[in-house]
């Protein structure tokens, strides 16, 4: 059993629980508010688990992914995903300065990651063609294509 499944930790109001108003009008729905953008998974683990936040990681039958398929975009996907998931948190917690500073750091990493990737494999966004020698936008494989094992 890992620390995230420890029942003694789930029982207290920790990162797996959130706050609700003590007194609220009747006949309205409410969801406990996430209290903090911490703890957070590292970007690679966040992508694999489908969330940056261990408190929201609630898998069917507690069966989890331990890795994602190996693709050239993996590193960039992980950074972009962590940034995106944190931005959804910021949408409902815009005053969280710590989360915003982390978001800015992730965006910087994402920009660098996209430049690194595009130099090796071609543009992710058309704006990157400004620095390229030819119109490489059309060059495959496109993101949904995988021509591995089957049929070959």
């Amino acid at each position: 059993m890992n620390e995230l499944n420890d029942p003694s930790r789930e029982a207290e109001c920790g990162y797996k629980c959130g706050s609700l108003r003590e007194c609220a009008p009747l006949a309205v729905g409410a969801v406990p508010e996430q209290q903090s953008a911490q703890p957070r998974y590292k970007t690679e683990k966040a992508l694999v688990r489908g969330t940056l936040f261990p408190g929201l990681d609630l898998p069917l039958g507690n069966i989890v992914n331990n890795s994602a398929a190996d693709v050239p975009t993996a590193e960039l996907m992980a950074i972009d995903f962590a940034a995106h998931d944190l931005s959804l948190y910021l949408d409902t917690h815009p005053e969280d300065r710590e989360a915003f500073e982390t978001y800015k750091d992730l965006l910087t990493l994402a920009r660098e990651g996209m430049e690194r990737y595009s130099r090796l494999y071609g543009p992710v966004c058309k704006t990157q063609l400004a620095d390229m020698d030819g119109y490489t936008w059309l060059k495959g494989p496109w993101p949904w294509e995988y021509t591995g094992k089957a049929g070959n």
Binding site: Q34, T51, L56, P59, L60, A68
Partner: peptide, 28 residues
């Protein structure tokens, strides 16, 4: 290979539910 992707997509539903719920709290 399929289940790996499906688990990711499934988890996103849980996260989105949380964010819609928080947005509903704020609105109300």
């Amino acid at each position: 290979d399929v289940n790996n992707v499906i688990r990711f997509l499934r988890q996103r539903e849980v996260v989105h539910y949380q964010r819609f719920g928080e947005a509903l709290n704020t609105v109300q």
